[in-house]
Amino acid sequence: MIDTIFIERGVVNHSRTQSIKSKFKNPTIIEVDRYQEIFNKRSQNFRIQKQNPALILAKKHDNFVLPAPSGFGLASTRNFYFSHMYNCIYDCRYCFLQGMYSSANYVIFVNFEDFFDEIEQSIQVNGAQDLTFFSGYDCDSLAFENITGFAESILPLFKSYPKVDLEFRTKSVQLEPLKSGLPIANCIVAFSMMPEELAKRLDKKAPSIKRRINAIEKLAARGWPIGLRFDPLIYSKDWKQLYKGLLLEIMHRVPREAIHSISHGPLRYPKKMYQDITKLYPEELLFSLPMSENNGYVDYGVDVENEMAEFLIKNLKNYVEEAKVFQCVVQA
């Protein structure tokens, strides 16, 4: 539970600040000038901070919508992302956020409306089709929904642009407002998946795969388009068996009609990020396994990556058409 909330002076009286504050019992409130003064501080220890992150409520001033990094998109010509929150309540050992930010504190930008305005401007500039907006690049889209209400706020916007896709990327089984609302055909709920045996070791503090599949089943039954994200693919001695088991379980439980898209990507880090993460968790088995540096990225190597990708595609063949399956690879 959050024990301390740092609030930028400029948003102390913002209605969303008040609403978020009210969700916590007796937090210590500390005012700050700008969130960067705490979030970007030198010599912070991400690993220790992660044991008890504080919440920072702030106002974002610019760059609300950004082009998605290469390899992040699906079929659309133009892919964008936005982040109303930095950092995640889960503690997945492979997550790049632990190498990207020096702070494990959660930042929530309370001026959602400015995000919505810039999303609309982007739609107008780029034309209202062949666009996908991704939520959940710097956080989990839905895990903090009961605190922020962000998804609930943004859904009406995308309802009015039926040819523009919105993806919520999540591991959360917190299903509101989706479960009680009517499905929106262009709003995709995309779940990150890996075999349960691996998730138990790596997806710390995140819902089990069993619970994620239950959540997917419920949302699919409500009519929400479902995305499956096998990203990153984690190698192991028996990876074929583990992934086959996962795919069979999904195929058995989730009707193919509900699947909007499936994407997969290898475990891959920029060299500096890999070094930072392995320094944080030197005892972690994941980072003791053989990975090598290729073109500035640390990964399993192209042979393993291709073998895993081909295996996945082959085993999905009878489930969804090939056009729905995408490989997401961060390019050097």
């Binding site: 192991s236 028996d238 053989p290």
Partner: peptide, 10 residues
Amino acid sequence: ALTDLKFDWT
């Protein structure tokens, strides 16, 4: 020693 290692998570 670290190459050709069979990753075993279980």
